[in-house]
Design a protein around this nucleic acid. Structure first.
Lengths: 100, 100
DNA sequence: ATTGACATATAGCTATTAGTATATTATCCT
DNA sequence: AGGATAATATACTAATAGCTATATGTCAAT
């Protein structure tokens, strides 16, 4: 495994990193971004995929949108969400690698 | 970069993963574990290293201890903390790799 | 054993976050 | 257009986190 040799995280980026992983630090949000990782999805797509109440999905999405982790785009009565923060993929892959 | 090919995160581990990154999702806690990553440290070591009030350091440590991310060991009037959750290193390395 | 100084922990208030119930917005049909 | 239905968003309450001020614990010296 590649080691970064304990180099200090760039202070300028640390705060944003904390913000991102804070947002991902919730089981439901983690599941949501896992779905979105595969491509755009509507609120109801996500709801169906992970089986939690719509209002919860919507709120989590709103919060993640608030810190520019996902973006929304209305499409008729649907709203399509997608991941816009590239680090999200890194973090998810990190988690996958962890549970070897 | 090695890709995990969007394999679903093991549901049994996802919850713990969320808990861990939630704990790391705070700038001060991130700095704290960065210090601890290099080895054991006392509360005051950490305080000196990152320059925030002792009470804050102590509280963050208590919280991380509460979910078994760090462990404490009294040594006279000092208390030495250390990381006991291996995934912490993975996450920190992930963050370092992110900000290429 | 008491005092003083230092190291760490917690109490108490405020602010965020999570979840349930309700509201809004959009589409389709008559 | 108006009303029904489906999709999404928000309001409100309960729990949790964060910060400042204060307390507890430990050691050393007298």
């Amino acid at each position: 495994m590649k080691r970064a040799l304990l180099r200090r995280i760039d202070p300028a980026l640390l705060s944003r990193a904390a913000e991102i992983i804070k947002m991902l630090g919730h089981p439901e949000r983690l599941k949501i971004v896992e779905v979105l990782e595969r491509g755009e999805a509507t609120v109801s797509d996500i709801q169906d995929a992970i089986g939690i109440p719509q209002a919860i999905v919507s709120q989590h999405l709103a919060r993640m949108r608030g810190c520019n982790i996902v973006a929304a785009q209305r499409d008729g009565s649907y709203v399509r969400y997608r991941v816009i923060e590239p680090k999200v993929h890194h973090v998810l892959n990190c988690i996958r690698e962890c549970d070897a």
